[in-house]
Design a protein around this nucleic acid. Structure first.
Lengths: 121, 121
DNA sequence: GTAACCACTATACTAAAGTATAGCACCCGT
DNA sequence: ACGGGTGCTATACTTTAGTATAGTGGTTAC
């Protein structure tokens, strides 16, 4: 009976947690989100700069993903109306904090590769 | 000139890192991987147990995702040929270590929700 | 005036991920 | 001999993600 209570607690915690993890996954999953975030790690960038740095991305995808990241509060978009309109993108506070998550992913990824002695790309 | 060297270093590190992160993402992304891993967090489970616990999953998806996770070394599949053949799934060492990554995702996810004062589902 | 840069958007497509539904082969209980 | 459980697989479909290619409207440089 006390056990049932505990199970419920575990279940509600774990569903909260699954939500939080999904939030995080939505933010980083997809082919281009990571390269964009990585590219912005070292400072603000303009559209064309990103397009040039991220090899293979089309402007459609870059535009779409930046919009996504902006909506999700990861990236800030600053428009300066100098006369050839200038737009700069930078990471938000949340975006910067993402680095911790990425670090733990890097750690796990390298660890896992070692444990499984290389596979995939 | 010394700078160019450093840039190269940064670039090669960051491409290594992007690979590692992608390994991690491949392992956890998709609609059902997380619920499966979460379900196995509390001990070994059989196919039908997982199917019942993970609401909405079809046997096709469960089978496919389990195969995926097995190939990627996240889940171990143990077949006991008791007379109604029994199959048990459990997390591998790597799978268990994933919890650290998930924890940092949970942390970020909750943090981010607070900073953005709730959106989405 | 025309070529090129900037920051995109539109349209149309292909490929990958996920769903729905059915079925198989085996076993057990009644 | 049937209804139900276990551990799946097969086929066909829809939905989402990503690609390819072209075009817009403004600015500046030659």
């Amino acid at each position: 009976m006390d056990q049932t209570k505990q199970f419920k607690k575990i279940k509600s915690c774990s569903s909260q947690c699954v939500l939080a993890v999904n939030d995080t996954l939505n933010v980083v999953s997809g082919k281009w989100k990571l390269p964009i975030i990585a590219s912005l790690q070292y400072g603000t960038k303009r559209f064309k700069e990103l397009e040039r740095e991220i090899v293979g991305i089309s402007p459609r995808m870059l535009s779409k993903e930046l919009k996504d990241l902006e909506i999700n509060g990861i990236v800030k978009r600053n428009v300066y109306d100098a006369m050839p309109v200038m737009v700069e993108y930078e990471l938000s506070a949340s975006g910067i904090l993402l680095q911790e998550v990425l670090d733990s992913m890097i750690k796990w990824g390298l660890q896992h590769r070692k444990m499984n002695m290389v596979r995939s790309n």
